[in-house]
Amino acid sequence: MENSVILYGASGHCKVIIDILECLQVGIQTIVDDNPITSSIMENSVVHTSNFSFTSSDSVILSIGNNKIRKKLSEQLKVTFEKVIHPNATVSKHSKIEEGTVIMAGAIVNPHVEIGKHCIINSGAIIEHDCIIEDYSHICPNASLAGGVLIGEGSQVGIGATIIQGITIGKWVVIGAGTVIINNVPDYSIVVGNPGKVIKLNQNEHH
Rank of each mutant, 00 (worst) to 15 (best):
37 I>W: 12
65 G>R: 06
168 T>F: 12
31 I>N: 09
176 G>T: 11
146 A>D: 11
184 N>Q: 03
76 Q>A: 12
6 I>Q: 03
58 D>V: 05
143 A>V: 00
150 L>V: 10
7 L>M: 05
138 H>I: 00
46 V>H: 10
101 T>N: 08
130 D>F: 13
38 T>F: 05
127 I>E: 00
143 A>H: 03
188 Y>F: 12
99 E>W: 10
201 L>C: 10
106 G>D: 02
165 Q>I: 00
82 E>T: 15
101 T>I: 02
133 I>F: 07
38 T>P: 07
185 V>G: 05
24 L>K: 15
187 D>C: 12
30 T>M: 08
128 E>K: 00
85 I>D: 14
180 V>N: 15
193 G>A: 11
124 G>S: 01
106 G>E: 02
135 D>T: 02
199 I>Q: 06
158 G>Q: 00
54 F>C: 06
7 L>D: 00
165 Q>D: 06
109 V>L: 06
63 S>I: 03
123 S>R: 13
154 G>P: 02
23 C>L: 10
9 G>L: 11
153 E>N: 14
53 S>H: 01
110 N>D: 12
62 L>E: 07
4 S>G: 02
86 H>L: 11
69 I>W: 10
155 S>R: 07
165 Q>C: 02
40 S>Y: 04
109 V>M: 04
123 S>G: 04
47 V>P: 13
110 N>P: 06
21 L>C: 08
82 E>L: 12
73 L>P: 13
55 T>R: 10
95 S>V: 05
61 I>E: 08
141 P>H: 12
54 F>P: 04
78 K>E: 13
